[in-house]
């Protein structure tokens, strides 16, 4: 800096440095350059300290959080366990509700499809105490218009018939009971034969001649001859066929899941009925039943009230008061 007075030296230096940086700025803008090399150097110089600091602080926080600041951990753990238990219980309850809703939806669909048929939703409230007989108790009785010999079904198939009717309860004999049964026929071949219970989970089809052709997997439906069940309700599927003397030995798997009944439908008429076939097809299992909200008595406060007085008009009337359905094909 020859020729520059020392007292102006710093001012000159200031001007030079600013000019240099302005030119650097102008160069960056013109060339669209960001001085990558300088940035790499600077970041490379600073980042090790940042990384070390980050690890250091992270380590301190981790150590503090996991080893020292644990005064509430036990209490938190206890509370979380309790919450977990409560949530598990809620999940189970919700799963049960979903399952129930699905069943009721099928009942409702069935009911809507069979509006001309007098029927009544009922909840299974107990099983027969005698292991030798297969009976259930439902929460509908004489006050609801349920009488002896009325048919009990589910959207999947027939269940049994009412054998005793009390004031608010009825006893139903399942078709799998030794004394249970129904008039049936094979859906394809139209061979008619009564189906009876064996006291076991499977049904037996009686009186089918050895000459008749019966295939495993064939569907058996109600024939309507017993004057309890309408025609063409699923009874079961042939699961085993053997030649016998003098008739074939035929076993059927019941269409309705009789081991896990929770809601059923009582056909509140003893007159012959004619159900729409499309709602009772074998795996229409997954399509059917009645107005559960209006007809099934609540098992818990969460379900709507279904006292007779609050039920929909026309859905609770005793069979005798109901108009008869057409009885064609009988």
């Amino acid at each position: 800096m020859v020729g520059v007075p020392s007292r102006h030296k710093s001012l000159f230096l200031l001007g030079a440095m600013i000019l240099l940086q302005v030119m650097m700025l102008a160069y960056q803008i013109r060339r669209d350059s960001q001085g990558r090399l300088l940035r790499v150097w600077t970041v490379g110089a600073i980042s090790p300290f940042e990384r070390a600091g980050s690890y250091g602080i992270g380590g301190v926080k981790d150590t503090w959080g996991h080893y020292f600041a644990l005064q509430n951990t036990s209490r938190d753990n206890e509370q979380l366990r309790h919450e977990n238990d409560v949530l598990k219980l809620q999940v189970m309850q919700l799963q049960s509700r979903v399952s129930e809703a699905e069943r009721l939806e099928r009942l409702l669909n069935f009911r809507q499809a069979q509006q001309q048929v007098p029927m009544l939703g009922a909840r299974v409230i107990g099983w027969g105490a005698d292991s030798g007989t297969r009976t259930i108790y439902i929460d509908r009785g004489e006050h609801d218009g349920v009488h002896r010999n009325m048919g009990v079904i589910t959207p999947d198939g027939i269940v049994g018939k009412v054998i005793e009717s009390f004031a608010n309860t009825s006893e139903v004999l399942l078709i799998t009971d030794k004394d249970g049964g129904a008039g049936a026929m094979l859906a394809d071949s139209r061979i008619q034969s009564p189906v009876g219970g064996t006291g076991e989970p499977l049904l037996e089809m009686k009186y089918v001649a050895n000459d008749d052709d019966v295939k495993v997997g064939e569907l058996a439906v109600t024939s309507g001859m017993d004057r309890i069940f309408p025609r063409d309700l699923p009874v079961g599927t042939v699961s085993e066929v053997k030649p016998g003397n003098p008739f074939k030995w035929i076993r059927l798997q019941p269409a309705a899941n009789l081991e896990r009944l929770e809601e059923v439908i009582v056909l509140t008429t003893l007159q012959p009925l004619d159900l729409k076939k499309d709602t009772v097809a074998p795996d229409a299992n997954r399509t059917a039943i009645d107005d559960p909200a209006a007809q099934i008595k609540p098992a818990s406060p969460a379900l709507p009230s279904t006292k007779p007085g609050t039920q929909k008009p026309g859905t609770e009337k005793p069979a005798a008061d109901k108009p008869k359905a057409p009885t064609a094909n009988r």
Partner: peptide
């Protein structure tokens, strides 16, 4: 003043370089 401005420039340029590509070199430097 000379030391001060040079130190300020160095600090400013380092800050520029650590401020990401949206800040051009020289902004904080000047």
């Amino acid at each position: 003043p000379s030391t001060g401005l040079l130190l300020g420039m160095a600090i400013g340029l380092i800050q520029d370089s650590l401020s990401g590509p949206t800040v051009p070199f020289g902004l904080y430097g000047i």
